[in-house]
């Protein structure tokens, strides 16, 4: 397998598209962007992760893997491709604006096509099936790499024979897109986390397991920073990492208004300012309405 990557493509669309806020926050974000470009680069991590995937026995039938960045629901450049056909598949879909990948980006959900010749959606992808025919592929799995409302990129896997993923393989693919989201958004945290088996537990802390309070906190912090939900998640993760806490624990403090990133300054928050205090995990709960 060849790692097919050019530095120019790798730098299209920075993982921190908006460097916002002031003071310490700005300094921290700029440092992160610098670190991303010169040290623990997203593309290196993505290449390492995808190379591991194609060599996994479970995905023995997968002929190629590609990761593209996306920006506002559109392709924003191929970041990694494990083979020339994998790169060509992404490039064609970007050009056509049609196919499993563009559909997945638009819908914010995976588009999984085990058999291109037998999928009701293929008819609406006018020209796509014909255009990819020379590549000789039969199945395409497109999974968005995203954090809620924010789409970071797209993971595409293809195989030459028709290939129906079993339940375990599907679950692996969904979790792989979560790990790629960290690689695209907070590569320095993966790089700094411990090696070997300890890295798994560090990653699990970052992955969080999908708590509602984490996403509520992301919304709150994005307003505090005046930035995007990506910025807010990167900030929360960095704070969790720096303090050794789990992401969900940091999120609970934010929602309880005991921790704030107002104007980019990390502060204790002001529990007295909002009626929302009772929402917090540590609230008094005398006025809980359920």
């Amino acid at each position: 397998m060849t790692v097919d990557l050019t530095p120019d493509e790798a730098l299209i669309a920075s993982p921190f598209p908006q460097v916002v806020a002031s003071g310490t926050m700005r300094g921290w974000l700029v440092d992160s962007v610098d670190a991303t470009r010169d040290g623990p680069r997203s593309e290196k991590l993505v290449a390492a992760i995808c190379s591991a995937v194609v060599s996994t026995p479970r995905y023995a039938k997968i002929a190629g893997v590609a990761v593209s960045r996306s920006w506002q629901g559109q392709y924003a450049g191929v970041l990694f491709a494990s083979s020339p056909p994998a790169r060509e598949l992404d490039s064609l879909q970007e050009t056509l604006g049609l196919g499993p990948g563009p559909s997945a980006l638009r819908e914010g959900a995976p588009v999984l096509v085990p058999d291109l010749d037998d999928d009701p959606r293929a008819r609406s992808w006018v020209g796509f099936v014909e255009a990819v025919a020379p590549l000789g592929l039969s199945s395409v799995y497109a999974l968005p790499i995203q954090v809620g409302a924010s789409s970071l990129g797209l993971l595409t896997m293809h195989s030459q024979a028709t290939f129906a993923m079993n339940d375990e393989a599907l679950r692996d693919a969904v979790q792989l897109s979560d790990v790629l989201a960290i690689a695209l958004l907070s590569p320095q945290l993966i790089d700094q986390s411990a090696g070997g088996s300890a890295r798994d537990s560090e990653l699990n802390k970052l992955l969080d397991g999908g708590h509602a309070v984490t996403h509520q906190a992301i919304g709150m912090v994005s307003v505090q920073l005046g930035g995007s939900v990506d910025d807010a998640l990167a900030m929360l993760r960095a704070h969790a990492f720096a303090t050794g806490a789990a992401l969900v624990e940091v999120a609970r403090l934010v929602v309880a208004r005991e921790l704030s990133f107002q104007d980019g300054e990390i502060g204790p928050g002001d529990p007295a300012s909002g009626a929302g205090h009772a929402d917090g995990a540590k609230g008094d709960d005398d006025d809980v309405d359920i």
Partner: peptide, 9 residues
């Protein structure tokens, strides 16, 4: 969930 957090903030 994210929108709810923004409105609450």
């Amino acid at each position: 969930e994210q929108a709810t957090g923004m409105i609450a903030e």
